[in-house]
Simulated assay, not measured.
Amino acid sequence: MEKDDLGVEATQNSLSFIPRSVDSARVLSGESYAYYTPCPTAITPHDKSNPTNGASESTPCVLGVDEAGRGPVLGPMVYSAFYLPIELHHSLLAKDHSFDDSKALTAAVRANLMHLLNTPGHALYESCGYAIKLLSARDISSGMMKPGTAVYNLNAQAMDATIEIIRGVVEERGVDVREVYIDTIGNPATYQQKLERIFPSLKITVAKKADSLYPCVSAASVAAKVTRDVALEVLYESVLQAQAIENAPTVPEGWGSGYPSDSKCVGWLRRNMDPVFGWGNECRFSWGTAKEMLEVKGGARVDWPADDEDGNGMLSEFLLASGPGKGSGQNGLREWFGQKQAEII
């Protein structure tokens, strides 16, 4: 995955184009969601009401799946399924528009291709559709930090995202997908066998470097990468606005690539860590980088009230009780929750 350096300058320049796959309100709220483009005019889906009607034969399509943002500590992970008529697969994507693995394209080229995909009247818009599953940093961490056997690891979340968007295109929207190409997670054979059991009617190919081998996967790579980058910029702009409201000092170099190996990202996390709550919806708390900062490098520990033996303890009773260190009424609430401390460097 390409480690773009995202910050103030990128934010100011890139947010002029926000693709429909980026729902800013849901991104800021920490919500995961799916997005599907309308079925393009060049594709006739299955006629579910009268499948035997020969006058409305469906269009055979190819579909590719890829992701962006698997490794960063900041921002969402995004999966994309990209589909178009099989007969246009190579001519439209590879020959006419030079789609390639998103890592091999510049940010400007990716953004332009995504803009064309969202421009009515353009050949890409009229012939191609795509689906997006955005998994928020909050939900990724929540799943990974579940106790015991309930843990929902990243591979399982990625697999479920892939299944959801394929099913959304094929079963819910009736697109006649014949061939599916997917960039692998782990062992390609194991991944492919699982998907073949779920979708027995599809010809599925799971391969390493599929984003460089199959144009539809390259296009999915671009859609996922641009969606993630813009979502990350939406989050960063929100952080800047919050700092401005609080009159907090801002650091113009931004938070870097968002990867734990990036010193600029680590520096931003240190400077912007709340001693109790850490960070906002932009951060994956389940990542070791974030855990270490909170647990070892200054995170304040909070003693939460425990339930009584019968499990009937009421938090409101604890908060509103009078006594040393608690106070009473609204003042007690404020004193119990405490005050935000000075910025940790």
Rank of each mutant, 00 (worst) to 15 (best):
D183L: 04
H122D: 14
D307N: 14
L92S: 08
S80T: 09
N50R: 10
E57W: 01
V296S: 04
V175D: 08
S58I: 03
A34M: 14
D310T: 10
T119A: 11
P147S: 12
R26F: 04
D183I: 02
S127H: 03
E233A: 11
F99G: 05
Y125D: 05
F17R: 04
G327T: 14
T250I: 13
G311D: 00
A220E: 06
G129M: 02
D262T: 10
T227H: 02
A42C: 14
A290R: 04
Y152H: 04
E31Q: 04
H115G: 13
G299T: 03
S58C: 10
T184D: 08
C61A: 08
A242Q: 05
E309K: 15
G311W: 03
E237Q: 15
A306S: 15
A300P: 01
S21W: 11
V78S: 12
E87G: 02
A224M: 12
D211A: 02
K264C: 05
L117R: 06
A108L: 14
Y33H: 14
R178C: 15
G258K: 00
A34Y: 09
M314K: 09
I18M: 09
V296I: 09
G323S: 05
G267Q: 04
P249Y: 11
V266H: 10
D66G: 06
A207L: 13
D139G: 08
A42I: 04
L240Q: 08
G30H: 05
L134Y: 11
E343H: 15
Y35H: 01
C283G: 07
I185F: 12
P40M: 12
M314V: 07
S127A: 13
D160G: 02
L117E: 05
A156Y: 12
R110P: 01
K146D: 00
M293T: 02
T250W: 11
E237L: 06
C216Y: 03
W268M: 11
R271Q: 15
A25M: 01
I344F: 06
L105A: 05
M159S: 03
D66E: 02
D176Q: 13
S91K: 12
A210V: 09
G323T: 07
